[in-house]
């Protein structure tokens, strides 16, 4: 089982590594968008999938990252890739400040608060907060990223940049999932009271996951700003949060392959449906309902943890 999936993943990786050679710039750019949303989906997956926190305002953290990059780059000329840690810091800090007083709220209340924060931030950006966000026009003229003096400009060049970032994300998040931290967070999601009883500080873990997911979205924002070279408040509206959320749930909440597949479907399908012109979103909506009904747990749900016991015959179930 393990070996088989390794072959499949290896095969996919190999196909994707050489894909830009065979694809035209449009499809490469679609894959870039898939990659970007996959990173965003994975970061939200920590919050929604692993910690079970109902976050429908993830675009806000994405926006904080993108605007941090855009402002520091256009005002001080700092190369965008150097700004990655700064974007992570500002987005994480922002998330920490807003999450601190609300993290204890019950599911749906947290949902509306995150929606509200997202909207407040968008309106603040439109109204040119502190005179540095450029109002509705946004910020333009963000410079392209450079790697060892090589300027990344074309879709297939971004493909490898985003691809690398995605690989690193998958690797780190995979390690995180199977760490002590990841298990504790899952425990809190499954049964907060029991987790508290086992000595896990639930709100501490929830807050940590929230900040971590937000910081990661901030870094994705940095890449997005560099790729678009122009960012405007409308790129971070409620709909973007909805897409990220749906990627996680539809793909399979808590599962990395699921979220990746969710990103492929959510970004890819509207493109495949382009030939339906103005009916494409209708078909997309119907597809969402059908997929959810057919696979209620998501397409590739999180597998229950299994542990091989030293001598017993049956493996353990869900923690």
């Amino acid at each position: 089982m393990k070996d088989k999936s390794m072959y499949i993943y290896g095969g996919i990786f190999a196909v994707l590594a050489v894909a830009p050679v065979f694809l035209n710039p449009y499809w490469v750019d679609v894959l870039n968008n898939v990659g970007l949303y996959a990173i965003l989906g994975l970061s939200l997956n920590l919050i929604v999938g692993h910690a079970g926190l109902f976050n429908l305002g993830h675009a806000a953290f994405f926006a904080v990252g993108a605007y941090t990059a855009a402002i520091l780059n256009t005002l001080y000329g700092i190369p965008v890739l150097w700004l990655l840690p700064v974007c992570a810091l500002t987005a994480g800090l922002f998330a920490g400040i807003i999450a601190r007083p609300i993290i204890h709220l019950r599911g749906d209340y947290l949902c509306i608060v995150t929606i509200g924060v997202g909207e407040i931030l968008r309106i603040a950006l439109i109204n040119d907060l502190f005179g540095i966000t450029g109002g509705p026009n946004g910020i333009f003229g963000i410079s392209r990223p450079t790697v060892f003096g090589y300027v990344i400009r074309k879709p297939h060049e971004f493909y490898y940049l985003i691809g690398t970032f995605l690989m690193v994300t998958i690797f780190l998040f995979h390690r995180l999932e199977n760490s002590r931290f990841g298990r504790a967070v899952n425990y809190v999601r499954e049964d907060e009271t029991a987790a508290e009883g086992s000595g896990i500080n639930a709100s501490h873990y929830k807050l940590a996951v929230f900040v971590l997911g937000a910081a990661w979205a901030g870094m994705a924002g940095d890449i997005f700003a560099a790729k678009m070279t122009i960012i405007a408040p409308e790129s971070f509206n409620f709909w973007e949060s909805v897409v990220m959320f749906a990627i996680v749930i539809l793909g399979g909440s808590g599962s990395i392959p699921g979220v990746l597949l969710g990103a492929v479907l959510f970004v890819g399908l509207p493109e495949v449906f382009r030939d339906f012109a103005d009916a494409r979103m209708l078909i997309f909506g119907a597809a969402m309902v059908v997929m959810m009904i057919v696979r209620t747990e998501g397409i590739l749900p999180q597998r229950p943890r299994t542990y091989a016991l030293p001598e017993a015959s049956n493996a353990g179930g869900n923690p």
């Binding site: 109902f54 959320f245 749930i249 909506g285 119907a286 969402m288 309902v289 209620t296």
Partner: peptide, 14 residues
């Protein structure tokens, strides 16, 4: 529960 939320979003778009 969150699966139903996504289905609801799909219905809304539709």
């Amino acid at each position: 529960r969150l699966s139903a939320v996504v289905s609801a979003l799909g219905a809304s778009i539709f």
